[in-house]
Each structure stands twice: as structure tokens, then as C-alpha cells.
């Protein structure tokens, strides 16, 4: 209890902690939203791949002194395009293509970072450095959060139908692959924001774990998006608290909290129903009623 009071007190006192909290919440929300579409499309591997594939972009951006977002976006989209190109121009399956492209990009990223001679940076890129969030970082994260929300609001029905039934979307003339690349682009932006809080290695956890947790609790996409965003935000705040109090690295702390939320949901949620008696009467009758 006292440590929670300490945390709240420190929040009032230290700007860096406030910035960290704001960034953590925003990243939790945006990755919860985009992550929902990633898991519903069966693209968890792709999410992991893109988040790793931005590394060379980050390195190049450092070297040239340009905005990290630009470098990361270019390499993120390039990786998504290459993965698709290999699949459509050979008999190689998607997961194999993902494995080849993302490991190559990741490896390239390491070499470029070592050329840039900033090993401290590398550590932060890999594991996150939430206590060093600058005002500019907050600015860009806010803009990206806005973009993510606008993207999902404006293209809600397109995202829904291409995730659920892409063939149908194609028959009425929707440009399914353009939407796919738009989603990949937004995903790279989210990845760059999440670099700050959880680091490249754990970005995929922020995309998938809150979304999967939300999925266990609802049968409606809109509800899932809101739930997932909330779980992402709460996990980030609680993780930050542990990070501050116990001096844990922020990324692993946030990711572990999210995993605990998932674990609890896995045991008690209605869809999972490891303990169906818990939900007797409300959801028991909803389970598989087949005429």
C-alpha cells in the first residue's frame, strides 16, 4: 500500500514519471487496438516480424539524424512487402517467408547499430527506456495514437470484413491488399511508439496479449477493441508501477503484468470456461446451442 502511495506521490513530483505514465497509457491503448486486428487476422507472426524488422530503420535514422518514424516506417513496409512478394512469387509459405525476411532485417539492424556505435541506445531500443520519454516523444506518440484511432474509425467496416471474410470483400471490389499494407504501415508506427515503453523484443507482447485477453471476454469486435485498449493501458500503468518501485526494466514489467491478466482471464473467462459453473445460468446456455 505504501509503495502505491509512494508511486502516486512520485508521479506528482517527477516530470519524467508523468511523461512515462502518459506514454505508457497511449502505447497500451494503440497497441491494444491494432493488436486486436492482428490476432483476428491470424497475423501474430507478422506482428512480431514487423516489430523486429524496423530495427535497421531505427539505426539508419540515428546515423542520418532523421526522425526514427521515417526510417522505421520505410523498413517496416519494405519487410511487409518482401514477405508478400516471396509468398506470391514462389511456393514458400507465409510463415517461412516471415521467418526469412524478419531475421535478415533484424540482423541487418544489429550490424547497422554497431556501425553507428551506440551500444547504450541498442539496449534501450531492445528493452525500452520508458523513464527517458522526451516531450517530442510524447508529441509523436499522441499523433500516432490519433492516427490509429482515425484509421480504425474511418475504416472500421473494411477492417472488419477483410479480417472476417476477405474473399467476400474482394468480390464487391474492395482493394484488400491496399488495406493490408495500410494496416502494416499503422503497425510500424505503433511499433515505433512501443519501442520507447517495452522495446523491440517485447512489442509483439503488447500487440497480442491484451487483444487475446479481451477476445476471451467478448463476442463483439467493437467491445473487444475497447476492452483490449483498456487492458493494454492498465497493464502499462501497473507495469510502470512495478518498474518504478522494484527497479525492474519497464518492458518486461509491463509485459508480465499483461500476461498475468491473460492468465487470469484464461482461467475464469466465460469463453474459456475452465470453470463453467462460475458462469452457470448466464453463459452456460450460450455455449454451442446447435439446432
Amino acid at each position: 500500500m505504501t509503495s502505491i502511495m509512494n508511486f502516486i506521490h512520485a508521479l506528482g513530483q517527477y516530470d519524467f514519471l508523468q511523461s512515462a505514465l502518459i506514454a505508457a497509457i497511449m502505447v497500451g491503448v494503440m497497441s491494444g487496438i491494432i493488436g486486436s486486428f492482428i490476432i483476428l487476422r491470424g497475423m501474430s507472426m507478422m506482428g512480431d516480424a514487423i516489430s523486429h524488422a524496423v530495427l535497421p530503420g531505427v539505426a539508419v535514422a540515428y546515423m542520418l539524424g532523421i526522425n526514427v518514424l521515417i526510417g522505421a516506417s520505410i523498413f517496416g513496409i519494405l519487410a511487409a512487402g518482401l514477405i508478400g512478394f516471396v509468398v506470391s512469387h514462389s511456393k514458400i509459405k507465409t510463415d517461412t517467408s516471415i521467418g526469412i525476411v524478419f531475421s535478415a532485417f533484424y540482423a541487418l539492424g544489429f550490424i547497422l547499430i554497431s556501425l553507428a556505435e551506440s551500444s547504450t541506445n541498442l539496449h534501450h531500443i531492445l528493452f525500452g527506456n520508458i523513464l527517458a520519454v522526451s516531450d517530442t516523444d510524447i508529441m509523436t506518440t499522441t499523433v500516432i495514437l490519433g492516427l490509429v484511432i482515425l484509421f480504425v474509425v474511418f475504416f472500421y467496416k473494411e477492417l472488419l470484413i477483410t479480417s472476417f471474410d476477405a474473399t467476400y470483400a474482394q468480390t464487391y471490389g474492395l482493394k484488400v491488399h491496399i488495406l493490408h499494407y495500410a494496416l502494416m504501415f499503422v503497425l510500424t508506427l505503433v511499433t515505433v511508439s512501443a519501442l520507447q515503453t517495452v522495446g523491440i523484443i517485447l512489442v509483439v507482447a503488447m500487440l497480442i496479449t491484451p487483444a487475446a485477453t479481451a477476445f476471451l471476454w467478448t463476442d463483439r469486435l467493437a467491445t473487444m477493441l475497447v476492452l483490449s485498449a483498456s487492458i493494454g493501458a492498465v497493464a502499462s500503468v501497473v507495469g510502470l508501477y512495478f518498474s518504478y518501485t522494484l527497479n525492474w526494466a519497464s518492458g518486461p514489467a509491463i509485459v508480465l503484468v499483461a500476461a498475468v491478466f491473460f492468465g487470469i482471464s484464461f482461467v475464469i473467462s466465460p469463453k474459456q470456461a475452465l470453470f463453467p459453473r462460475l458462469w452457470h445460468g448466464t453463459n452456460a446456455k450460450k455455449k454451442r446451442v446447435i439446432a
Binding site: 472488419l160 472476417f164 471474410d165 474473399t167 467476400y168 467478448t218 463476442d219 463483439r220 469486435l221
Partner: peptide
């Protein structure tokens, strides 16, 4: 077009009503 034996994700968070509504999207 009603496809042959769709291998749809039947766990997708969507209701029967919402699926029918997607017919208006085009």
C-alpha cells in the same frame, strides 16, 4: 457469391446480424 465450404474463423467476434449487415458494405 456464396463460397464453397468457407474455412472462416468461426470464433470471430461477430454476430449473425452483423454478418448479414456486411452485405450492405459493397
Amino acid at each position: 457469391y456464396v463460397e464453397q465450404r468457407k474455412d472462416l474463423d468461426l470464433s470471430f467476434p461477430i454476430s449473425v446480424f452483423e454478418v448479414v449487415m456486411t452485405g450492405t458494405y459493397g
